[in-house]
Design a protein around this nucleic acid. Sequence first.
DNA 1: TTGCATTTCAAACATTTGTATGAAACTATC
DNA 2: GATAGTTTCATACAAATGTTTGAAATGCAA
Lengths: 223, 223
Amino acid sequence: MASDQTRTAILAAAERLYADRGFGDVTLRDIVAEANVNLAAVNYHFGSKDELIAELFITRSIQLNRERLRLLQAAEEAGDGRASIDAILRALVGPTLRGCLGPENQRSTAARFMIRVSIESVPPIRRIRNREIDHLRKFIAAMRRSLPGHSDVELYWGLHFALAMAQQTVRDSERLKKLSEGKCDVDDVDGVIERVVTVAAMALTMGDATSKAPPRMLARDAR
Amino acid sequence: MASDQTRTAILAAAERLYADRGFGDVTLRDIVAEANVNLAAVNYHFGSKDELIAELFITRSIQLNRERLRLLQAAEEAGDGRASIDAILRALVGPTLRGCLGPENQRSTAARFMIRVSIESVPPIRRIRNREIDHLRKFIAAMRRSLPGHSDVELYWGLHFALAMAQQTVRDSERLKKLSEGKCDVDDVDGVIERVVTVAAMALTMGDATSKAPPRMLARDAR
DNA sequence: TTGCATTTCAAACATTTGTATGAAACTATC
DNA sequence: GATAGTTTCATACAAATGTTTGAAATGCAA
């Protein structure tokens, strides 16, 4: 109980190093050097290197999921139990994008760490990832309430695509910047969020007003 | 000149193992055992492990890019130099999705290897990735011809989102299957392609018919 | 066959890695 | 202030890994 000084120092140092240099070339020795603690401290406090990584990831994931759910609940309450699809999607992708985009020097270590996670994905993390599904189901449920009449399949695809656009933007924002020669402003976080939400919402609702939907979508929906 | 038997045996074995077990836990010794060659053969023929990985990735990338460009050219010729945006997007995401989705036991080693690449992304590969930009510019050019009057920024975002949806579907098809309890048929490759193309095309053209566009998009476009 | 270049092979090397050990230092309780 | 429990530390361990080496084998031309 006394000193989790060492513990927290290790966690902080590890997160900083992983964020900066990736999982691949950060060793325990790097971490303990950065944290100014003894080599054996990691195994003493965490059991193993993998458990250290897992704890880091779990902590940040819980924070992320909590924030998402907070926004989702707020949106549903504001809409008397039925949130707009835009609000739901914003609750889903907003926290990720807000955390991981924006001017580089303003990004928190936590955010940069989560970017790494999405780029490199090391075994101990991949094992945990599966638990995310239960969390996503809550969003599916909210979407079902928001868009009654829509088939579940469409909801799943919509959520999948929304996450895809958010994730890839985080992961590959550099490529987009280079490709567009800076014309795409990835640092305008709110702009990016609206973009992702708009496209995803449109994908979800395009079957709605049948007259406006492009023919090929009707064709597929009918199949 | 004589025997690139060994060379090709190594390449084949490496691709198979990487595809099956990931870059993380495949060692040179695993590879040479699978290929039935001597340990030193890899360094003799390729210089280093990283160069072996790089060669594998480059080979497959070139094949992918060639296929994409072939489809793009065909589409542009069919449209007298101006392809439909759908055809362009199909040329962009089709090869990836066709290669990497579909019933697991039907996937080629090459396809499974490229899935691994998109999941794990190891340093020697990341170094090469940047060259992809020149290739993507050709698609931007085609999109410009297809949708004159659209701002470049919108084209970049559209291409980015299209790739995002395709990539994430490849990378996380398992999660989507689990989440949807099998209701989303990721093995229906053509269906997936149409889905991605439709959403991306819609994202690109939504500013078109101003009357139909949701207000917030107009707001952003005007800014 | 001779001679030269290429290729293969077994073995060793040199590091790097995460982890374990056991003694020492520290802390808090009685 | 003695004692028991916790934490720190230097060091060693064991295993894995990519790479190198130098000799043997092989292929091939003259």
